[in-house]
Computed example of a mutant assay.
Amino acid sequence: MEQFLTTLQNLTFIQYATFIPLFLIIYFIPTILAYFFNKQNLKIIAIANVPAGFSMLIWFALIIFSITGNASDKLLKKLKLKNNETKQA
């Protein structure tokens, strides 16, 4: 940890200008993915993303939730349609 802090202290302005946006993009990947895949839960994921970034386990769980939100809804709709078709036949 000390080596990381020392490295951060020795960065130049250009390196900071590159590091900070990249860090924020990586930190907020669950929110970015939710914007594209799970808009109905975007606010919840964005709020949960702030403290979740400190815990890798919760951060990965948020990534999975942000990607599978609409996929699970679509899968449930398909299953309901298939069940209705088999009942009608």
Rank of each mutant, 00 (worst) to 15 (best):
L81G: 01
Y16G: 00
A71F: 10
M56T: 14
L81K: 13
I20K: 08
Q15Y: 07
N84T: 01
N41K: 11
T12Q: 11
I32Y: 09
V50E: 14
M1D: 05
Q88T: 03
Y27Q: 07
I26D: 04
F60Y: 12
A17W: 02
A89L: 08
K82C: 02
I58S: 13
L62V: 09
I29S: 06
L22S: 12
Q3P: 01
N83G: 01
F37H: 06
N49Y: 14
I58V: 14
P30W: 13
I26Y: 10
T7G: 03
W59K: 13
N38V: 01
A17G: 04
T31F: 05
M56V: 15
I14R: 03
E85V: 02
K78M: 14
L79D: 05
A61G: 07
N49V: 11
E85H: 00
A71T: 09
I67V: 09
F37M: 10
Q15C: 01
T12M: 05
M1S: 09
N83E: 06
N84Q: 14
T31C: 00
L57G: 14
Y16A: 00
Q3M: 03
L33I: 11
I67H: 10
N38K: 12
P51K: 15
L76P: 01
I47L: 15
I47H: 12
I20Y: 06
F60Q: 11
G69R: 04
N83D: 05
N83M: 06
L11C: 04
K78T: 05
S66R: 15
N83I: 02
Y16H: 03
A71W: 08
K87T: 02
N49R: 15
A89Y: 04
F36W: 13
D73I: 07
K74F: 05
Q9C: 06
M1T: 00
